[in-house]
Design a protein around this nucleic acid. Structure first.
Lengths: 129, 129, 129, 129
DNA sequence: GTGGTCTAGACCACC
DNA sequence: GTGGTCTAGACCACA
């Protein structure tokens, strides 16, 4: 897997795990890959994966069973969704709308672009084994 | 003025200047504030402002007259618009649409939010003197 | 039974056994549950229970009869009491008092909280069968 | 400075900073030592100090000004106090009282010990320069 | 086997 | 100068 270089790797890994949870590939209560395993799979340092898991644990998306590993917590999906929703509504959208006004893009155009996007959509394969 | 802390300040300052140009507050050929003045106004290190002007100059949005200062170049508006448009269409929108699908936000909702945003819009005070 | 996650499980199990001894639920000479049984009861790896028993045996709180199991030793209560008393007076209390000063909690308040605690006390179900 | 080895160093450093804030040695808005400087002063790796600052920043006790360093945030004292108070009331005290019952220590004895502690108290010198 | 912590050292962007 | 991230490698306690 390749990472974007304009965002910290540990964030991208955390996001990857979140996506897998949202898509049901990692259901509630499921063990997620061990720090070492995921580090090998993603070709990064274990510390980096550890940091991802740390942030996810702080957000109570995953939890730790001593000596066993990390597991998807009960409300993981909900926590991720509400978090994303917050930042989307409070940060992303205002930015977007501000740019739209500056670029004089109408809402009609926006909808067109959205439908175009959906038409071209391809499935992705970032699955954590 | 307060800056977001997830983006480099010099970028935010450059964006601010661009906005002022797009909105016509800084028309073509106009002198923009000196590095020192803007640094004082924004409570920022002059080096940081200088770096903003540097990037704007590289993009040929402003130009320098030695000993006089920086001035808005002829096709500043056009350069900014096409640049913004590019990144908007190629980067921001795909990200946005991806999140919308994840959050199950329909285009109809999007339109509603846009109208809501426009209704609540407050006049903008990020004017460079 | 649920375990705190900021303390090793084998320590919590050892403490649990000690409590049962202090409260007389496991009188002197009594056989304590086999490693396997307690492991099943507590939903824990047998190695973990074994480690608890090991430390208790080292402190001569329990002893082993080969092929029969572990038994509460003669002066188990006394050993536990003096050990606990030591760590309580030398470690816990100083920490506690230091925090009390920081939080500006008076001894009068402390007494109140103690009485409140006693009033709300619920019977204890951490019994080892 | 020497660290206890039963608690992570980065936690002890965070606690140290908190104490300095509570005692007014680091007033609101004040710059705290740079990561590197404190690392040298405490003879630890900069990463370790960084981790301390990270947790403090997450708890909004300190904040970062890009390129300048970390500063004590406005409600730092309050945040620390309420946090400590919570863990004290919800965790430390119940543990304490439970042990008191097991050890058959009365509240009168507790008060005596508290007064004794106050009498022997010595000032401490963990000041961050 | 699992995570958790720490060190040493590097590189980078930013102010 | 500041923080932020990452790697490599080590050691430890725990299950």
């Amino acid at each position: 897997m390749k990472f974007k270089d304009n965002e910290a790797i540990y964030i991208q890994i955390a996001d990857l795990v979140c996506e897998n949870i949202l898509e049901g590939k990692l259901p509630m209560g499921e063990k997620i890959p061990s720090v070492r395993d995921l580090a090998i799979q993603l070709q990064v340092n274990p510390n980096t994966v550890m940091r991802s898991y740390d942030t996810l644990q702080n957000r109570e998306i995953i939890f730790n069973k001593r000596g066993l590993g990390f597991f998807v917590s009960e409300n993981a999906q909900q926590i991720i969704r509400t978090g994303k929703r917050q930042s989307f509504l409070k940060i992303r959208l205002p930015e977007l709308f501000k740019e739209m006004k500056l670029l004089e893009i109408s809402s009609a155009e926006l909808i067109n672009l959205y439908q175009e996007y959906n038409a071209n959509l391809k499935p992705n394969h970032n699955e954590i084994q």
